[in-house]
Design a binder for these strands. Sequence first.
DNA 1: ATAGCGCGCTTGATATATCAAGCACCTTCT
DNA 2: AGAAGGTGCTTGATATATCAAGCGCGCTAT
Lengths: 132, 132
Amino acid sequence: MAETKERDSATTESSTGEISLGKYLASIRKDRKLSLRAVEERTKKQVSNAYLSQIENDQIKQPSPNTLNALAELYEISLEKLMVKAGYITPSSKRKSGERHGRVATFAEHNLTPEEEQELMDYLEFMRSRKK
Amino acid sequence: MAETKERDSATTESSTGEISLGKYLASIRKDRKLSLRAVEERTKKQVSNAYLSQIENDQIKQPSPNTLNALAELYEISLEKLMVKAGYITPSSKRKSGERHGRVATFAEHNLTPEEEQELMDYLEFMRSRKK
DNA sequence: ATAGCGCGCTTGATATATCAAGCACCTTCT
DNA sequence: AGAAGGTGCTTGATATATCAAGCGCGCTAT
């Protein structure tokens, strides 16, 4: 009675006021014009079509980092963004809404690709939100 | 070709040739002079004493990132190191083409603490090892 | 029409993470 | 001595992730 779990979320506007993990992943997959089974193959069976379907319909609460990573790589999106949406990261000290923060050009000294740079920045936020 | 799931014993020298996750965590806890229940309390129940015991005895294969993070923070060790030991990160291609990294002093522009810097560097390796 | 294929989806089964409750043992007290 | 409390540990119960197998539907083709 204390807490009913099901007040979720067809449209979960949790931390950043964004859509749910499932809807987000679904929209991206469609953008990439991939079928569920295509994703299954391209991820070398790391994510089955059945499972992806459940994820996209928000029937899975917290896919493992491995799963999220496989999808992030295939779709070429930020792993940490998925980690946030999956609830691994507490949205405590999140940035002000919708604000793009400064760049980290100095990361270039490590031959970071733009994606790596973005991921590192996301990860920094991740760490700091946890530190709270 | 399949990797048989081996549940070998106490001294698992996997990725970095180090001890298993459980033994590693146990040694650190003792170093910090904390009891299982003390850890339970200090992590605000994020890790129960029963569960920690299982982890330390390698009865748990892959604790969640949340759990690992709680321990990493309490012990003040690298989360990514635990992620490696937990098997979230494949220790395959550490060297892509004789690549080695230097320091990342420039991270200081983001007011990184030494720990954050270390974690970011670990995480960079994490990303790159994942990238194939 | 019908055979086939691709699509998203459902479901049963299995593996595993996680914890509350308890147990056996060991130190101090009084 | 016994109570009280600390220690690591075990276990039964519960929740959840994950997949193989299958379903029904819409397309093309014959």
